[in-house]
């Protein structure tokens, strides 16, 4: 049973730049408790003050701080829509439809070894997932990749929640190369791999998972309009035919996909 969806006028508490391309928005609901959200779910954020864009933007739930009644969104400045979101300042209103989608499968035992791996802004949902695994008494292994050290986001937060391994394409931090080239994948085995990142990276991890017979779930980010399973724009080809990423996903078992 997924949490009930709602339309919420969030208030931005802070806007923190993480390097040139990323912004972390911490938001709260000043009038009510935030809805229950699952790791891997997302919000459809309304983009105000953007003349050339039209639709909401689907953004992962990066973190939920229940004590502070805060939800965090990590925004990568790509086009006009994300630029407008990234320009929101403390006190601004951010209208969110949330939580949406299915979320990642979670461990059933605290001893389950979960590898949470992502690239770039795709690491966003893994932080909240790691937090939920820790709350269950488990500990995650994070394998985080980026082009260069300055694009590795929220490392301090990840380190609190689990063991962190890093790759950068230019070798400026951690091992050099892509996440799939990290030595930990040769040295350790996992009960589940949860992936969010660029499509080529997720496909490479999926190949590794198949080779090592490890269950693997990936989070897709197809372009979408409604976020509710109504417009049928965000479909992915699966073994069940075309299905909506917004409601049947964004998280899919790799065996469901035609990868």
């Amino acid at each position: 049973m997924l949490p009930r969806k709602s339309i919420v006028d969030l208030t931005v508490r802070s806007n923190q730049s993480l390097g040139e391309r990323f912004v972390l928005l911490k938001c709260t609901d000043t009038s009510a408790h935030l809805p229950l959200m699952l790791p891997g779910q997302f919000a459809q954020l309304r983009v105000d003050n953007s003349k050339t864009t039209f639709l909401r933007r689907p953004i992962s739930i990066n973190y939920v701080d229940i004590d502070k009644n805060e939800v965090w969104f990590l925004i990568q400045k790509v086009g006009a829509g994300s630029q407008a979101l990234a320009s929101l300042q403390s006190g601004d209103i951010l209208n969110a439809l949330m939580p949406l989608g299915n979320g990642f499968a979670m461990p059933t035992n605290t001893t389950d070894r979960y590898l949470l791996t992502g690239g770039g802004v795709g690491t966003a949902p893994l932080l909240y997932m790691g937090r939920c695994i820790r709350d269950m008494g488990g500990r995650s292994t994070f394998l985080l990749g980026a082009r260069t050290a300055s694009m590795l986001l929220e490392l301090d937060m990840f380190r609190v929640l689990g063991d962190v391994y890093v790759t950068t394409e230019d070798g400026s931090m951690g091992e050099s190369g892509f996440v799939t080239q990290h030595s930990i994948l040769r040295e350790q085995r996992f009960d589940m791999i949860s992936v969010c990142g660029p499509s080529p990276m997720m496909k490479a991890v999926a190949r590794y998972a198949r080779k090592t017979n490890t269950p693997c779930q990936v989070s897709l980010e197809n372009m979408m309009a409604c976020g509710l399973g109504a417009c049928l724009c965000c479909v992915e080809k699966t073994v069940r035919g075309n299905v909506c990423v917004c409601t049947e996903g964004p998280v899919f078992d790799i065996n469901e996909l035609n990868w």
């Binding site: 039209f54 372009m223 979408m224 049928l232 724009c233 965000c234 479909v235 992915e236 080809k237 075309n242």
Partner: peptide, 21 residues
């Protein structure tokens, strides 16, 4: 229905080619 991508944004609107899935 049709293949992805089925949607594009434009100023003041959007285009879709869902194709009756």
């Amino acid at each position: 229905g049709n293949d992805y991508p089925r949607m594009a944004e434009t100023t003041g609107g959007m285009l879709n080619c869902v194709g009756l899935q």
